[in-house]
Nucleic acid binder design. Sequence first.
DNA 1: TTTAAAGTTGACTATTTTGCTAGGTTAAGT
DNA 2: ACTTAACCTAGCAAAATAGTCAACTTTAAA
Lengths: 164, 164
Amino acid sequence: MRLTTKGRYAVTAMLDLAFHSDTKPVTLTDIAARQTISLSYLEQLFSRLRRANMVKGIRGPGGGYTLADTADKINIADIIAAVDEPLDATKCGGEANCQKEQACLTHDLWMGLSEQIKDYLKGITLAQLLEKHHVQSVAKRQDQEAEQVIEIHRHTELLASLNE
Amino acid sequence: MRLTTKGRYAVTAMLDLAFHSDTKPVTLTDIAARQTISLSYLEQLFSRLRRANMVKGIRGPGGGYTLADTADKINIADIIAAVDEPLDATKCGGEANCQKEQACLTHDLWMGLSEQIKDYLKGITLAQLLEKHHVQSVAKRQDQEAEQVIEIHRHTELLASLNE
DNA sequence: TTTAAAGTTGACTATTTTGCTAGGTTAAGT
DNA sequence: ACTTAACCTAGCAAAATAGTCAACTTTAAA
């Protein structure tokens, strides 16, 4: 499991898609504008995502992309795996020349670590991230409202003190 | 927290170093030979690791590298952070033009994810990986011994049956 | 005290990946 | 027909990756 900007772009785009796909398909042009990712790069990414059955492409006017499944069934690990190269995995080519030294055991350790991260990301779905997103934005708005209340309160206090 | 081959090389090399640093310093030449990483590339990586105070370089004959601390105090996240670029972090440059859309919230989500992975890797030390390594090799040896026992058992059974 | 082994350092090169541009073709709606 | 948007292909510049080479320090041994 590699974690690079490419995977981040893919996850970002999929999040945007999930967030905006209530009724109509979402065009890559829209995603490109909102997330400031170039259209052509998005096309590359979605070409892979489509072939991995993560999204569906709908052609023609009114077309665009939709999620191939509900947001709670799409996990982050799969998105990243879809856009990344197949990951040549072993430097030691599978089996042969490897066990003569303990050289490749460290390699196994890394792979194990990588698998753990993969499992971790497999447990996180788009739906969960959207939920978190929602919670955050609500929290932010509540903070802003709270600040406004405080501001008004101070304002009235100030007025009150002037009237004494 | 990025996960690339560069970080993997660094962790692999550090594991090798930890594994072989009982008494003498370990030369990069040895690590290069064991882990099939080019000496010069190792030099680059260890240059960064040294500046990050992860290892100590000892010059002259009989020199080499040692861990700057005990293996149970060196975690994976720090190793990877040491060899990676400082990670420009935000595409949106800190604060300014970002909150007008919800564009950067997905970015925040990714950063949060990245932080979680970082925390996860911070909790894993070289010592733990070596332990796992040890357990695995012991398990492997035990498996082999077990197979030999079974083999011998079958063999004696065969001999016994022939004697009937 | 030379000398040479062992390590450090920096500059330099080749390859791969990344992100993007430009140009099309194909399918579907108006 | 015309437009819209997916889809495909080729290429390209910048960056990261992986490695090379040569100059320079330190220090143990001669």
